[in-house]
Each structure stands twice: as C-alpha cells, then as structure tokens.
Amino acid sequence: MTLTVTDLSITRGGVPVLEGLSFQLLPGKALILRGPNGIGKTTLLRTLAGLQPPLEGKIEGAEDQIAYASHSDGLKPTLSVTENLTFWAAVFGTYDIQPALDAFELNELADRHAGNLSAGQKRRLGLARMLVTGRPIWMLDEPTVSLDRNAVQMFADAVRTHLGQGGSALIATHIDLGLDGEVLDVGPNKAKPKPIDDFDGGFL
C-alpha cells in the first residue's frame, strides 16, 4: 500500500512538465501537492492514477489501489444522489453507501436529482464517491473547490478518518486542510518533499 515514485517525468500535450520527481506515500499519511497553476499537478495525479503513461521513471504500488477524483465529479444529473453513489459503489464492488452519505451530510439530499444540487453539494457527492471506492490511496485534484467552510471541515474529517484506517492521500490543493502530512511543493526546481511545519498556512 506504499506508493513509491522514482525519478518520474511526465508530459502534458507532449511537453514535459515535471521531471525527476521522487517521493513516497506511506499508509496513514497525506501528501499535500502544491505548486503554481500549470506546473503539472493534475497531470501528475492523472499519471499516478494510470490515465496516462509517464515519460520515464517508476511508479510502484499504485496498481488497483488508487481512487481518483478529478476536477469533475462524474455525476449524472438525471440520477438521484443515492443512485449516483450506489452505481459507483457497485462498480468498485462495495455496496454500503450509508457511511459516505453520513460523512458528507447528504442524507437529506438522498432522493434529489444530482442535476438539482448546488455546485458545493455536487462536490460533496463527488467526494463521497471516494468513500465508496474502498481503495486505500486517494488522489484528489483540488477537492475543496466550491465547498463552504463547513464542508471543507467535513472533507478534512473524512480524509483524517481515512488516514486513521491506514489509507493515504495525495491532495492537490491551495488551502490548508490541517492534515498530518508533508507538503510536496512542485514549483520550479523544488520537486522534493518538505515538512509541513515550514508551510505558512496564514493565507487561508
């Protein structure tokens, strides 16, 4: 369940964006991915999730372990909240969606069509999908977009619970979630993990 990345180079649209990236993601740990827009955070997550091949380098321990959440939530507007979640649960072979509904306070919305939800509610449903995958490594791409303060807390709690159960998470985000983990700053020429203590969370 440890994800090990060695000397990874990735491309977006044929142009190399990140080169020589190495890090390790241990069970129970979160790794916060930071960097300016366009530096390749999304491309890195897509590469690790197996959606595109790396240019060079090795990814170990990712096979069938990763649950990936992209910018879009993969929701069907004409299906209800329950139907959307039940579908993804069935795809991943888990069948209990109640904990996911509880964690993101979706019980009251359970019978609403996803198309009628607000942007933040859709995002919560998209994040609840991570819980029904049952996969240990979460890859989240800007998970807190359009979430309010309360929902961000919900999400941080869900990640903390996940880490507590021995899972791990790689999160590309620009805000401080108060998680136990390191920051992987992929700005130009600094693709090395540094401890979260160095990070100034004051700009939140």
Partner: peptide
C-alpha cells in the same frame, strides 16, 4: 466524457 465519469471508469476495477 463531459461529466468526467469516463476518467473515473477508466480508473475503476472494470
């Protein structure tokens, strides 16, 4: 593809 489910399906066990 538009709503992102295709990406998610591609990373699913199917």
């Amino acid at each position: 593809w538009e709503d992102g489910s295709l990406d998610l399906l591609a990373t699913a066990p199917l």
